[in-house]
């Protein structure tokens, strides 16, 4: 079922445009209830509950950050330990080679640095950004207003239950301003 007939014929999906976020949210919930899974909603501001409505719940960003932060923490402390105990062990005012309390600030900064970098790079990587081309921008209404004040729901042609006529009819029932076919 990977490639549907419509997908093979250059169709990305069918997109409905809404004026209000509540209408989009209701439509997204109905679409999920109707059995559609491969879909995405596009909004100019984050809308609470919308990602749950389309069945997207796990972000993995926090897992990335936990890994990044732990590596930063161990790397920061490990670096200082290695410098003062192994690579360049010198007696400084009688302090022990591993004077760990003095290493806490740098360990903390390295933790924050790596955690922040993984948060940002991980988020963009999971989002697949930067992405120079995406089919949704083929809809002129989308490229003009999706980032300003309109709300869009796109059911993708790769969805097993996708059928151009039926999906269009389904979206047209959700009180949209417009329903458009999106080419790849």
């Amino acid at each position: 079922m990977a490639d549907s007939f419509w997908d093979r014929h250059g169709l990305y999906g069918v997109m409905a445009e809404f004026a209000e976020p509540e209408e989009l949210l209701a439509a997204a919930e109905k679409a999920y209830g109707f059995g559609y899974r491969k879909m995405d909603a596009y909004t100019p501001l984050p809308i609470e509950g919308l990602s749950d409505a389309i069945g997207f719940t796990r972000t993995f960003v926090s897992t990335f950050v936990l890994i990044g932060g732990s590596l930063g923490c161990m790397g920061g402390f490990g670096l200082l330990y290695w410098i003062t105990k192994i690579a360049y062990a010198h007696n400084v005012a009688g302090r022990p080679f591993n004077s760990w309390p003095a290493y806490i600030p740098v360990t903390f900064e390295c933790t924050v640095l790596l955690a922040s970098l993984t948060a940002v790079i991980g988020m963009f990587a999971l989002n697949g950004l930067p992405q120079p081309y995406h089919p949704v921008f083929n809809n002129p209404e989308f490229s003009a207003r999706a980032s300003i004040d309109r709300f869009f729901l796109c059911i993708e042609a790769t969805d097993p239950s996708f059928d151009l006529v039926k999906t269009k009819a389904f979206l047209a029932e959700q009180n949209p301003l417009e329903v458009a076919e999106i080419e790849k």
Partner: peptide, 21 residues
């Protein structure tokens, strides 16, 4: 803008990353 398109999936990860930051 890196091709930002306001996808809900993106917003969810975005908000999580922003909150963690």
């Amino acid at each position: 803008a890196l091709g930002w398109r306001g996808s809900t999936k993106h917003w969810t990860r975005y908000q999580m990353a922003y909150l963690l930051l």
